[in-house]
Simulated scan of single mutants.
Amino acid sequence: MDYKEFCEHIKDEIKGFLPEQYAAYDTQLHTVSKPNVGEQVGLTFVPPISGTPAPVIYLEPYYDAYLNRGMSVGRLITQIADTAVKGIERGRSGVGGMLGLVPDMADWNKVKDKVTVRVIGVSRNTELLKEIPCRLFGDIALIYQVSVKAPDDTLMTVRITNNLMEQYGILEPQLYDTAMENSQRLQKVTCRPMGEVIGDLLGPMDDPIIDEAPAKLYVLSNETLQFGAAALFYPGVIEKIGNSIPEGFYILPSSIHEVLILPKNQGEKAMLENMVQEINETQVAPDEVLSDFVSEYDARTRTMEWGRDPNLTLPEQLKDKTPDRTPMLPKDVIL
């Protein structure tokens, strides 16, 4: 069966796999535009009681398992039902979705201290970027989201669209200022040698591989390592790194969670871009890819040449989203 038939079949059959106590839940299909991967179909379990969080399960991975890994539809429905039950139970216990944590999503006064920045790629997301407030830096777009930690420490986010910003009654500069202030408070910047980061992830080893990491390769992110590539745009970060690397540096867009900083005398831009593109294709989850293009900072002139797709023509709606320069920001940032 094709993808549309698969989704409709799952929606129609799934209730027969749910425990009896959840028989009153309705099932609906809807599409959501997600960075890098475009529109995805979500199966929503709508509760009978208004205001209770409704679990949403995206069906693309299950269709891939059906199409390419030979898994039966019955087995997949069982898996989806199990996932749905866990989501429903989380909602009933107060650990549910964003609706349960922030019921007044359209009220600026209720969400303004939860708004943060994140980044996505430009060339992969031109259609999506038309619908959301953003600033473009070459192939990297700075966008905004409402971020909330659930009681179990799960980070939940809702992307801010142009329509939502209009409901807030504010303009993009105010959204930018608020989100940047919150991000620095809630998701503090970190910049550490690659070897240290790998060592923290893997723990003590008899034959550590961290010795293989380039001595002057740094990982720039935030303390949570979630959406940390946006820390590149925190006040003073670029200038602070430039002061520490007088020969200038390259920015390698590792993922939406971090970027890598490499002094210019440690590599060639063309070779680095080839490496980034290969890693994006083989080792980074599709929805976490940031960009294929390397940026270059000249410490002498304090200017950035942002990596971009030379063949991309921006839609008219995005041509005024490019700042004239990287904002010059306070110097008291701590790395």
Score class of each variant (00 low, 15 high):
Asp2Gly: 13
Phe6Lys: 01
Lys11Gly: 10
Gly16Glu: 10
Tyr22Leu: 10
Ala23Asp: 11
Ala23Tyr: 10
Thr31Met: 11
Val32Lys: 09
Pro47Lys: 00
Pro48Asn: 04
Pro53Thr: 11
Pro53Tyr: 00
Ala54Asp: 01
Ala54His: 00
Gly74Asp: 13
Leu76Lys: 01
Asp82Trp: 09
Lys86Gln: 11
Gly91His: 04
Arg92Ile: 01
Ser93Asn: 07
Val95Leu: 09
Gly97Gln: 03
Leu101Ala: 09
Pro103Thr: 07
Asp104Ile: 09
Met105Tyr: 04
Trp108Pro: 03
Lys112Met: 12
Thr116Asp: 02
Thr116Val: 12
Thr116Gln: 03
Leu129Pro: 02
Lys130Gln: 12
Glu131Cys: 11
Glu131Asn: 14
Ile132Cys: 00
Ile132Thr: 10
Ile132Arg: 06
Cys134Asn: 12
Leu136Asp: 04
Ile140Ala: 01
Ala141Phe: 02
Ala141Lys: 03
Ile143Phe: 03
Ser147Thr: 15
Lys149Pro: 07
Lys149Ala: 13
Pro151Asp: 05
Thr154Glu: 13
Thr154Tyr: 08
Thr154Arg: 10
Leu155Phe: 14
Arg159Trp: 02
Ile160Phe: 08
Tyr168Cys: 03
Gly169Gln: 08
Ile170Cys: 09
Tyr176Ile: 10
Thr178Trp: 07
Gln184His: 02
Gln184Met: 13
Gln187Ala: 07
Lys188Met: 12
Pro193Asn: 05
Pro193Thr: 05
Pro193Met: 08
Gly195His: 15
Asp200Leu: 11
Gly203Ala: 05
Met205Pro: 00
Asp206Glu: 15
Pro208Thr: 06
Ile209Cys: 09
Ile210Thr: 14
Glu212Ser: 14
Ala213Gln: 11
Pro214Tyr: 12
Ala215Lys: 12
Leu217Ile: 10
Tyr218Thr: 09
Tyr218Ile: 10
Thr224Asp: 10
Thr224Tyr: 06
Leu225Ala: 14
Leu225Asn: 13
Gln226Asn: 15
Phe227Met: 07
Ala230Glu: 03
Ala231Val: 07
Leu232Met: 11
Phe233Met: 05
Pro235Phe: 13
Gly236Val: 08
Glu239Leu: 09
Asn243Pro: 02
Asn243Arg: 15
Pro246Met: 04
Phe249Val: 14
Phe249Met: 13
Tyr250Val: 15
Leu252Ile: 13
Leu252Gln: 02
Pro253Thr: 03
Ile261Leu: 13
Pro263Gly: 10
Pro263Gln: 02
Lys264Leu: 10
Lys264Trp: 11
Glu268Ser: 08
Lys269Gly: 02
Met271His: 06
Gln277Trp: 00
Gln283Cys: 14
Pro286Ile: 01
Glu288Lys: 08
Glu288Gly: 03
Val294Phe: 02
Glu296Thr: 12
Arg300Glu: 15
Thr301Gly: 04
Trp306Ile: 02
Arg308Pro: 00
Leu314Met: 11
Pro315Phe: 12
Glu316Ala: 14
Gln317Asn: 14
Gln317Gly: 09
Leu318Glu: 03
Leu318Thr: 06
Pro323Phe: 07
Asp324Glu: 13
Asp324Met: 11
Arg325Cys: 10
Thr326Gln: 06
Pro327Ser: 04
Leu329Gly: 04
Leu329Trp: 05
Leu329Phe: 09
Pro330Phe: 08
Ile334Glu: 04
Ile334Asp: 06
